[in-house]
Design a protein around this nucleic acid. Structure first.
Length: 402
DNA sequence: GTCAATTCACATGAAAGAGACCACGGTCTAGTG
DNA sequence: CTAGACCGTGGTCTCTTTCATGTGAATTGACGA
């Protein structure tokens, strides 16, 4: 495109009407002033945390609920208010929020402690130190001043599944070693069964209090969407039934409000791109497809080469569908593919793991079945909609050539 | 026909290795006064 | 004399391999009716 053309384009873009008024209210980091249908939970959490304002140690809290039920939102909201109150009263209090799922941030014991220590002003190198050392540095940081600490560990189940419950044990025990400071932990998890697998000592101290977030129902999601849409969009851009449809989609998926909001936002973007002044029900369908496609394409292109080879093997086995494939077949195709592309061949053990990861990502459906005399294997079928298969296939082919 | 044993083709777990990345402390080197 | 370059050691972390053990039902074969 020539320079002048670009200028015109940007100019036009700026002047173009948008359905959005304030888009960020539909995005994840946004915290509304009023959180609908979570009064009960907010009150509970506030009650439990309140003692920290008097310098006492609040109980540890364990919070669970499915994704998109407002756990993180509510906790962030309440802790923020708590922090404000503490500042007014001049109470020494520090609240640190950590998302344990973020790769390279806090998904191992070392990194979690390092992250916490960094938040306390002690910078720790990303690797290289014995974990013991990191704990010491962390303790020193804790003890520099007399203070109450509240650590919010989001998606804590991810961390524990990976590294075991040592971390939590150490953290809960640190209270005894930290002379002047007291720490409380708020653990947030999607997985309700998670606590059951914990070491009993850890369990009893971590879940001194428990707060449960039930899924929203369709009506509640509608109300939430309305609340946000009010600010997010210009007046009268929503066609009749749009909100209802968004809510219905999300409710079908165990009441995930985040999904619903994303759907609405993307629908708005689609409408914008089409220069439509209104968001129609059709846009929602398109948005849903787009989200799906983007998600899968994103996953696929960021996977390492070996994963892509495995996926390609599955794809090339797919044409004779209406019959599912098994691990052994996939592995055979994969092996020949490796030879063709001059890639080192991984063991079947590894492929087995990769397949189960694909299953978790929703790219394939893999179920372990027993074929009796003919052994036990995974029953694999594609979990991607037919429409985008060709695109993915060419994408993979391009990537493999490199 | 019934029932337990067998058997297949992997699944699943645990442990350990390879290799990348990094910090730290000690040693060496070259530049400075 | 000192700052910086350059090791060697020891640590984490991810991806893999190796070895070991587990598993569920179709099949088999013995057994009794």
């Amino acid at each position: 495109m020539i320079e002048g053309g670009l200028d015109v384009f940007f100019e036009a873009f700026l002047r173009k009407d948008s359905v959005f008024f304030e888009k960020r209210t539909l995005q994840t980091p946004y915290i509304p002033e009023i959180i609908l249908y979570r009064e009960e939970q907010t009150k509970q959490i506030a009650n439990i945390l309140a003692p920290s304002l008097k310098g006492d140690k609040p109980s540890n809290i364990f919070i669970y609920g499915k994704t998109g039920t407002g756990k993180t939102l509510t906790v962030k909201h309440t802790t923020k208010k708590l922090m404000e109150a503490a500042e007014r009263e001049n109470t020494p209090l520090k609240i640190i929020y950590v998302n344990c799922k973020l790769k390279r941030s806090a998904d191992t014991e070392y990194r979690l402690i390092a992250h916490l220590a960094t938040e306390l002003g002690k910078s720790i190198p990303p690797t290289g130190l014995p974990t013991e050392e990191v704990y010491k540095a962390f303790l020193r940081a804790l003890n520099t001043q007399k203070q109450n600490y509240i650590f919010v560990l989001d998606e804590i189940d991810q961390l524990i599944n990976k590294t075991g419950d040592n971390v939590l044990y150490n953290l809960t025990r640190i209270n005894e070693e930290a002379a002047d400071s007291q720490i409380s932990i708020i653990g947030i998890s999607n997985d309700i069964m998670f606590v059951d697998n914990l070491d009993p000592r850890v369990r009893s101290s971590l879940s001194e209090e428990e707060v449960v977030f039930p899924p929203y129902n369709a009506l509640q999601i509608q109300a939430i969407l309305r609340q946000r849409a009010e600010i997010a969009f210009n007046k009268d851009v929503l066609e009749q039934g749009v909100i209802e449809k968004c809510a219905a989609y999300a409710a079908r998926d165990h009441g995930d409000a985040r999904r619903a909001l994303e759907l609405l936002r993307v629908a708005g973007e689609v409408a914008d791109r089409k220069n439509s002044k209104k968001i129609t029900i059709g846009h929602i369908d398109e948005a849903e497809e787009k989200i799906d496609r983007d998600r899968i394409i994103d996953i696929i292109t960021t996977q390492p080469k070996q994963y892509q080879l495995v996926l390609y093997s599955i794809l090339s086995l797919n044409p004779n569908r209406n019959k599912n494939m098994f691990t052994g077949e996939v592995y055979e195709v994969y092996k020949s593919l490796c030879r063709k592309t001059n890639t080192s061949i991984l063991t079947q053990r590894r492929i087995s793991d990769i397949l189960s990861e694909f299953d978790m990502l929703g790219i394939v459906n893999a179920k372990v079945i027993s074929k009796g005399r003919y052994g036990r294997t995974r029953d694999i079928s594609l979990g991607i909609s037919e429409a985008i298969l060709p695109k993915i296939k060419t994408l993979l082919e391009e990537n493999m050539r490199v």
